[in-house]
């Protein structure tokens, strides 16, 4: 694989909570039009790693990172994620979308949850409507919620909330999509559909999936990184 295909490069990343080292010397690259899987036992720092890549660890008191995470920018230069100022972070998080393991819907309606990132961008009502609809169709949720878009999102089931969160990130069309256990709340049929969606998404962007389902990883991924303890074990 040619080096110019690399979208994000993690170099010697260490993450600390207080003085405890929770991730040690992580080195990974995520390539364009590839699906990379990160596997490892519970508590090995997979979710922490995804939070670090989007600088969301900044919001966790006493968390600290060392090393570098570089993101290829549009003009073919490299952007050190850890050197970005506070005002550049919204743009980073729109380019690198993160979907959390546990659905975290906002305290508002189904429609407004998906429309939220688009409203921040100042899109017109018409553009928001069509984008929300397309995203909900993509995650196979449209038919289930089309008649109750104004209902609170918290009334949806766990699986529906997980797909809503996926739709909410997809509307931003991020260049890199980081998904933390994206099918953990879904039944087999829906999990299969979401896997197909991920395969489709990787045709045009970089997809990174944290998963503990070995068969899912084997089916989907072009590259696998394994974390064990607090260290990267192999790739």
């Amino acid at each position: 694989m040619a080096e110019d295909n690399i979208k994000m490069a993690i170099k010697d990343l260490d993450v600390y909570y207080y003085e405890r080292l929770v991730l040690k010397k992580v080195n990974m690259v995520f390539r364009n039009r590839e699906l990379t899987a990160i596997v490892g036992p519970s508590g090995c720092g997979k979710s922490t790693l995804l939070m670090a890549l989007t600088r969301l660890l900044d919001t966790v008191p006493h968390a600290r990172v060392e090393g570098s995470v570089e993101l290829r920018s549009n003009d073919q230069g490299w952007l050190n994620v850890f050197r970005l100022g506070e005002t550049d972070l919204p743009s980073l998080r729109r380019r690198v979308g993160l979907i959390f393991q546990h659905p975290n819907v906002l305290n508002t309606s189904i429609f407004k949850n998906v429309a939220f990132p688009l409203r921040l961008l100042g899109l017109s009502r018409q553009e928001i409507d069509s984008n929300v609809r397309a995203a909900l169709i993509d995650v196979f949720l449209w038919d289930e919620v089309r008649d109750r878009l104004d209902s609170p999102a918290s009334e949806l089931s766990g699986g529906q909330q997980q797909r809503l969160c996926l739709a909410r990130t997809l509307v931003l069309q991020p260049e890199i999509l980081l998904l933390d256990e994206p099918t953990s709340f879904l039944d087999e049929d829906l999990a299969g559909k979401i896997e197909n969606l991920l395969i489709r998404l990787k045709e045009e962007r970089t997809v990174v999936v944290v998963s503990h389902y070995n068969d899912q990883v084997l089916r989907l991924s072009d590259r696998v990184y394994r974390l064990a303890g607090n260290q990267q074990e192999s790739n």
Binding site: T87, L89, F116, P117, L172
Partner: peptide, 22 residues
């Protein structure tokens, strides 16, 4: 909850927007 705070920020909200909207 931190998950709620992180939800707004992960969707591209600035700190002030997250404060106001979330």
């Amino acid at each position: 909850p931190h998950s709620m705070r992180a939800a707004g920020l992960s969707l591209g909200a600035s700190k002030l927007q997250n404060l106001y909207h979330v």
